[in-house]
Write a protein that binds this DNA or RNA. Structure first.
Lengths: 337, 337
DNA sequence: CTGTTAGCGCCTTCAA
DNA sequence: TTGAAGGCGCTAACAG
């Protein structure tokens, strides 16, 4: 069809395609008036770069791939948005893929992204399998893990919220309010970030003499529905706990649903603390107390490291970066009466 | 670097690259045992197709581009998810871009997508400028508009929720509940979908003898914040209206925020009806009555039309498709006392 | 059933 | 400052 190529422009301008290519790439070694003339012709004839050809011959695409699991979790939607914005400013485009490490088909996604010659990949996952996966592909392409790591000594570039610290902060906060018997809802044992959160919480609680009853989420995602079912399970029998720490805000929202059904008042009958600070946590009817995930900072730090790695493939900077969460006090936690 | 190409495999297998290519593309005209041998070698040597090269030489990428504005609106997040799923089943990948037609830089996004030789584009927008934009690019690439159109006679392939019908349904529903004085919050005059919603609502209201006071949203998106401010404006002075129809659910959530601030009870003091049925509308603390956007159906219909257009470029099917919304009665509307 | 050949559109040395 | 030429990895006729 009528796609106009570099060759067409060259012919019309009476120059070689090398020159046109130079102009297109902003090479300084080209006569200014020639440059302008060629640029004009490009506009005039509606020339559009074939990015496939460019990528093929240059070996760079200015594309960053990102794999994440739950775009319907506002936390991830926010992250995707922030990532896109961050990258665009730096001349990169985002190739966003939905995929869950636990699903097994994630290799296909990597192959897809690498096959498209993205310059780097951000994998948003705290799955236990993630580090191994990354190690396998790291020899082909720069990757940054946005998600928890079991062993901080691990030589995998990664950026994530300090879930262990968050768990501790949660325990301390609830303790400060006088809660000594608490429940932890939504533990995921296949997930490093959740694991750290749980461990941090449990350790601090233990130190403070609190008792913790834990409800585990066997699924691979933390949805409102899961939170709802876990909370039902919790509320169904008499309980002595005066506070609930939810593994994340979506779980907490599910807890609120269930509480309403059971005519349990939050925070009068029981306090509720979330994690992430998704946008709906701040909604007036909800006003969930929670720990802010610092999503934008996390994702921008991850992207920054990735771009560094892309631009300096040699400079091995595999130290994990942890971002501390921030307590956001709203209306769902109150002192024990 | 150590990327293994089709040529390497060919050499190792002692065949020509054409044969390897055939195997990779599932051509039946290859001896089965040769096929298996080559496949084995590919696995063994970690061969990975270069999708850029493939796209360049074949002219097809199996990529579908999608441009949408608000990934942070759960409605769009859901749509993106549904789209991705729908496409993947059919062998296509999604290249998702955030962009707003009104921002003016959308031409760059089109150029980016076309430059990457996506096979087709879905533009999610109801902006007034969208039709013209599409007409400009339609000669280069199949496009389906997912969003409202002013004139259904327009020869632009498009799929969208029937907002006019939705507006009418809203008016009828509120009328049936006894509301004769109502407010419409969040009208956007730069947006066909919102315009149709408003017109349908106004027309039906008029027919039924209802009075409508309209509050316009001058921004390019409908967020909770906008709804909040509009509602404040509304609540600030004494009002006679007994019901509010919000242009969409996010606006409605904003209205709920403001109402709480003003100690106005929904639905006791005033009824509230939304549009879209985003996931949070169903949340127990919210229970927003609304009209379901049929987001999945809309987006799948759009994608289906796009794929048809890609596969049969000749078959001109430019008739707009409208999907009727569905009333979802929850707790925010009640009969006028 | 398989190989040869000629591109796809662009970038990038190397010469001039 | 510009041009010529080769190649990026793959596909797609056309032969055989």
């Amino acid at each position: 069809m009528g796609t106009v190529t570099i060759k067409d422009i060259a012919r019309i301008a009476g120059v070689s395609c090398a020159t046109v290519s130079r102009v297109l790439n902003g090479s300084p070694t080209v006569a200014p008036e020639l440059r302008d003339k060629i640029l004009d012709l490009c506009r005039q004839y509606g020339y559009r770069r074939n990015l496939l050809a460019r990528g093929l011959s240059s070996g760079r695409t200015n594309l960053v791939g990102c794999i994440l699991s739950d775009l319907d979790n506002p936390l991830f939607a926010d992250m995707a948005l922030a990532l896109e914005r961050f990258l665009r400013v730096r001349g990169y485009h985002l190739l966003l893929c939905r995929g869950r490490v636990e699903d097994g088909n994630i290799g296909q996604l990597f192959d897809f992204l690498i096959g498209h010659r993205v310059d780097g990949i951000i994998l948003a996952s705290s799955s236990k399998q993630a580090p191994e996966l990354i190690r396998r592909y790291l020899k082909y392409i720069p990757i940054v893990l946005q998600g928890g790591l079991d062993d901080p000594q691990l030589t995998i570039p990664s950026v994530y919220v300090d879930s262990a610290a968050g768990g501790e902060m949660a325990a301390q906060y609830l303790f400060r309010l006088g809660h000594t018997e608490v429940a932890y809802l939504g533990a995921r044992e296949n997930n490093y970030s959740h694991l750290a959160r749980q461990r941090g919480f449990a350790a601090a609680a233990d130190r403070l003499g609190m008792s913790v009853r834990t409800f585990t989420n066997g699924a691979f995602s933390s949805t409102m529905e899961v939170g709802y079912h876990l909370a039902r399970q919790f509320f169904l029998n008499p309980f002595r706990e005066t506070a609930v720490f939810a593994a994340c805000d979506t779980i907490a929202l599910g807890v609120m649903s269930a509480a309403r059904e059971f005519h349990i008042s939050i925070p009068d009958d029981i306090s509720l603390l979330g994690f992430d600070n998704i946008i709906y946590a701040g909604f007036p009817h909800i006003r969930l107390s929670t720990l802010d995930h610092r999503a934008r900072l996390v994702v921008e730090t991850a992207a920054d490291r990735l771009l560094t790695q892309i631009q300096h493939p040699d400079a091995a900077c595999a130290q994990p970066v942890m971002i501390p969460p921030v307590l956001v006090e709203r209306a769902t936690c109150k002192p024990r009466r």
